[in-house]
Amino acid sequence: MASGQTPSQTIGPFFGPALIRPGLEMMARPATRGEHLIIEGRVLDGDRAAVTDAMIEIWQANAEGRYDHPEDTQEKLLDAHFHGFGRTATDAAGRYRFQTIRPGPVPDRRATLQAPHINVAIFARGLLQRLATRIYFPDELLNATDPVLNSVPPARRGTLIASAGAGGTLHFDIVLQGDDETVFFDI
């Protein structure tokens, strides 16, 4: 029997004790294969004010470019020390931080290799639906041919590419609204 989807509603401001537990943002363990890195940034609103009550979830492939999921049947190795899911909330300055690894490339639906990327979902008071975006990596040759990046107007593409900081840290701000608004996807 077919029936309609249950509509989305906002996460509101009071989700923290229910959804956020320390450690969910530490996705990589010492034994996890691949290039370990920190991704951090801020969530900002249309006035460039910090969004201090957002939840960020990320989902990514392992260093080989395989998702830990039964529908990813690629002949690539799984990593027993990496699942690929992270969740955190922004702090009083609107900052978030994940400790993870650089994912390998995964194919798109036409078997074109996508550039390495991290899938991001953003929930917050004031957002009636979750926002979806992707974090791409700077200095990545595959970015030039990535089908998703190439579907974005060139002037806005840069909002999807993290910037390199010191000591293996990548910086990725999420701007919810305005001229330099982050590109969000209808997924």
């Binding site: 249309g46 008071r125 004031g126 957002l127 926002l131 979806a132 806005r156 919810l176 608004e181 996807f185």
Partner: peptide, 14 residues
């Protein structure tokens, strides 16, 4: 001040 003003870009599922 939080809702994006740009239309989201449709992404074919991968």
């Amino acid at each position: 001040k939080r809702a994006p003003l740009h239309e989201p870009i449709r992404l074919a599922h991968t």
